[in-house]
């Protein structure tokens, strides 16, 4: 009985948005140190067998990559010209220092050291911590797209909460403001819930006259000033339908990134990061 009361007290205490205490940080860092010696080699071995299986499709992939590389080379020239022009315009319009640094992001490479074995708390541990400049609520991405948010930070390791555990109703819910690639100024939505049963995000608060269609790429809008702009989240799968009292619409979004067997992830560090909740 006493145990039960104590347990409820501890849970209530830990529900708050709190920083880690020193003993917790110590345990976290020392366990992460042991874990990192096992996770990566296992990944290499598993990856090796996968490579053997994939060897046939390599040639096809190679051809595809060559055409995309050519397209990138073309775009690069265009980009250089536009970037220069943009810098000139910003100077002419007297942008403030803060405005200029708004889209200046730094990607920190982190290694995954372990994955939690709790179905409702699928925390991922990475080997960068506050010593490397990691702060809470930073976005974590892979090459495919957004995968998580930094939830707890120790000195040399930190915990990542995958966006697949987002839920509007949970006590410490977080939400991501999103838009559509190519129509950043016309589309808007908020992703706050992941449906475990069908593996889709629920995008809500879509305006009535939004031109969103099926197949559009959903990216973060950066409007909350917490997530940087332009991180890929997924693709729109259903046309927006009336929801929430009929004033706004909801649509389902299919995630693009693979949340299993992660090895390398990137933590996105904004240059003028000041913290806050998303």
């Amino acid at each position: 009985m006493i145990g039960l009361i104590l347990f409820i007290a501890v849970i209530g205490f830990s529900l708050r948005d709190r920083q880690l205490s020193a003993p917790e940080k110590f345990v976290n860092d020392s366990v992460a140190y042991v874990q990192q010696w096992l996770y990566k080699p296992a990944g290499y071995i598993a990856g090796f067998f996968e490579d053997i299986r994939n060897i046939r499709s390599l040639q096809e992939e190679n051809e595809q990559l060559r055409t995309t590389a050519a397209a990138y080379a073309r775009d690069k020239i265009k980009y250089n010209v536009i970037e220069k022009q943009n810098a000139q315009l910003e100077k002419d319009l007297k942008f403030t220092e803060r405005q200029r640094k708004l889209n200046d992001y730094e990607y920190l490479i982190a290694q995954v050291v372990s994955v939690s074995s709790d179905p409702y708390n699928p925390t991922i541990k990475i080997d960068l911590g506050s010593e490397n400049g990691i702060k809470e609520n930073m976005a974590v991405v892979t090459v495919d797209g957004l995968i998580g948010i930094i939830s707890k930070v120790s000195a040399f390791s930190s915990n990542v909460e995958p966006i697949t555990s987002l839920d509007e109703k949970s006590p410490n819910s977080k939400s991501i403001s999103v838009t559509v690639l190519g129509r950043e100024n016309e589309s808007f939505g908020i992703i706050a819930t992941y449906d475990q049963e069908n593996g889709r995000f629920e995008m809500s608060r879509i305006p009535e006259n939004d031109p969103m269609i099926v197949g559009d790429t959903v990216i973060t809008s950066g409007l909350g000033r917490v997530f940087p702009r332009g991180l890929v989240v997924g693709t729109v799968e259903t046309t927006p339908q009336a929801g929430d009292f009929g004033l706004t619409k909801v649509a389902s979004v299919k995630p693009l990134a693979d949340f299993n067997r992660l090895t390398e992830v990137f933590v996105v560090k904004m240059s003028d990061y000041e913290g806050g909740t998303p």
Partner: peptide
């Protein structure tokens, strides 16, 4: 140990 190492939202 499990709670502290993979602390997401609940402890204990």
């Amino acid at each position: 140990l499990q709670d502290v190492v993979f602390y997401g939202s609940l402890l204990g």
